[in-house]
Design a binder for these strands. Structure first.
Lengths: 342, 342
DNA sequence: TGATAGAACTAGAGCGCTCTAGCGGACGAA
DNA sequence: TTCGTCCGCTAGAGCGCTCTAGTTCTATCA
């Protein structure tokens, strides 16, 4: 078997182009990179030859030899619609700035740590972790050797060196509760996202905001998660309780789907009997049979800002700190007036 | 600003470990790779030192220097739940076999060609393209320089050098139609996936199978797509027609969501008024408020087989050809008996 | 005793690129 | 004329690794 491809010929290298053009490897390098230091005449001539030969730079060699930062490692959960959405703007921003993006997906058996290690193996210059799930201390430790940006998750310790671009969770939850209360709801429950920082923030915001509305005794929280199954199980427990809620704020859109599923199972109608609010609001996530009422995060902005700031830090050492975007509340068809008797 | 990390120290290299251990770079290389040729004593000693130093092999250098194939490039659509599902088994199988996987996502503005070029830049040894959208000729041309495997999409020309691992589309559609016909449905429509090969196969299978059931005059096809929006728009057109169907087979699960959405909009109940069948059946895709009746592809099998075969080809030159898996039909809650009057 | 084999290890080339240092020639200024 | 300067270009080192072709050392056997 021929390793180099069925046609038996190696991929052309800089050397090949240089030989064909009768110039040095260095000149070709300058030209294909678009770096200054070559005459216009040489540029057009060499580029034409490179094209003819089908030359494509070897990214591995380029990264190995280069001295300026050029590689951003990104990890995300492959089964998250919201993460997938963020990738689009991350790709676009990075490519526009001349940076390579290397992806490492997190799956069931391939978690944060695996993914981060894979990225470190590529010696990326910075790490963009979407909603990191490892302990903050680990991120902190990592940040000693390269810039780390957490997209979505806040850092608890102010002293941290880990940069953050995120959404104002409290604002999002507040909008949702204000909306529901204005519709006459009082028994507003929360299916939370579990023990993570984002989940904790949303849960606390829920509690605070309920209290501010004088509904402290109506606070009802049940452990959910970031997927539909978790939402469904959680909602089922909620409905089994003594006083089922008239509105449910789910941890995210997928979770909200599960919640609606459970309501359906219980013969309840949305929003007539129970109102449901999601979170994230990425277009791809809004496929529910009813247009989901949701807290819309600025996906494009989050992705773009993360990359822009990370690059600014890499190139000029500008600190990023904690960038907070305000979400938008998007009323849909899954929320309505509280039932009369409630 | 210090490029090499805030602690100012470069990442340790083989050289560093070798020096610390008082042995040659070559020996350390042998040991960290787990290659034969080192004593047990050296192994434990050097490994301990490597660990202490926090040594992590540089993948770029390793790939650049290595002569045996080790890198599989994978491209997929970031917003496809089915593709995301496939990634899990692809990762696991490849890692288990000691291969690196490099991902390149396809997004709105970052299409097949971009993604493939990015992967070629890394000089991957083989390309695994999930549901490729480029013309077959282009794949064919690509296959001249490295093994190409199309996961999901069949090749039209028998002479092609592109390998395929896919699902038996005809069988899947047949199961769906048999199921619906057994429930008394006659007006079974199809919201298709557009002009791609997979879409065409499912469409043709639909037509053939309807004909076999003596329902040729009931054939009703409307152009959909692989997402909920497309499904919704398509179903709307279907319902506007003279004789709306009593059952709809959607191109995939996301499309089916859209179809259900349109039915809901029209005040129709699923499955009382109209039955709906999806396609793919990955767990993450089955979040509809009703358990979707769907044609379940063997996601794990597809991913695993693709990688296993690709590796077999790389290492032993074994041809892959056209591997076809048979899907499973999973009856859910979105299909029921045809309405009496229909 | 010396030849021989095998195990353990090393030297050094080379993967494809970038980057620094420097070279030659053209040109303008003194 | 001579010097300096700038432009266009090249030589060659080096990025961190793998791999081939040794070398050394010990054990074994005629």
């Amino acid at each position: 078997m021929d390793r180099t491809g069925s046609n038996g010929s190696r991929k052309p290298t800089l050397e090949d182009v240089a030989r064909a053009a009768g110039v040095s490897r260095s000149l070709v390098s300058i030209i294909v990179r678009g770096a200054p230091g070559a005459s216009e005449a040489s540029r057009t001539r060499v580029m034409a030859i490179a094209r003819d030969l089908g030359y494509l730079p070897d990214v591995r060699a380029r990264l190995l030899a280069g001295t300026s930062p050029k590689l951003i490692g990104v990890t995300y959960k492959t089964n998250s619609l919201h993460h997938a959405d963020l990738l689009s703007s991350i790709y676009e921003t990075a490519e526009g700035a001349g940076y390579e993006v290397i992806l490492s997906g997190r799956t069931r058996r391939h978690d944060d740590r695996h993914a981060v290690n894979a990225l470190l193996g590529y010696r990326c210059d910075a790490l963009l972790i979407i909603s990191p799930e490892v302990p903050e201390a680990e991120l902190q430790q990592l940040s000693a050797s390269l810039p780390i940006l957490s997209l979505g998750r806040r850092m608890v310790h102010a002293t941290t060196n880990v940069d953050v671009v995120r959404t104002d969770e409290a604002a999002g939850i507040r909008m949702a509760i204000d909306h529901l209360v204005a519709l006459g709801h009082r028994r507003v429950a929360h299916v939370d996202g579990g023990g993570g920082v984002i989940g904790t923030d949303r849960r606390r915001a829920y509690r605070d905001c309920m209290t501010r509305h004088g509904l402290r005794d109506q606070v009802s929280i049940v452990t959910g998660g970031d997927n539909a199954d978790a939402g469904r199980r959680a909602a089922r427990r909620l409905l089994d309780g003594p006083e089922p809620p008239t509105a449910i704020i789910a941890y995210n859109d997928e979770c909200a789907w599960g919640v609606m599923r459970a309501l359906e199972d219980a013969g309840l109608s949305v929003p007539r009997d129970v109102s449901v609010v999601g979170y994230d609001g990425s277009p791809v996530a809004r496929m529910a049979p009813h247009e989901l009422t949701t807290v819309h995060q600025d996906t494009d902005g989050l992705g773009r800002l993360s990359v822009e700031r990370l690059i600014a830090r890499l190139e000029h050492g500008l600190p990023i700190g904690d960038v907070v975007l305000v979400p938008t509340f998007v009323p849909g068809e899954t929320t309505g007036p509280a039932p009369a008797g409630a």
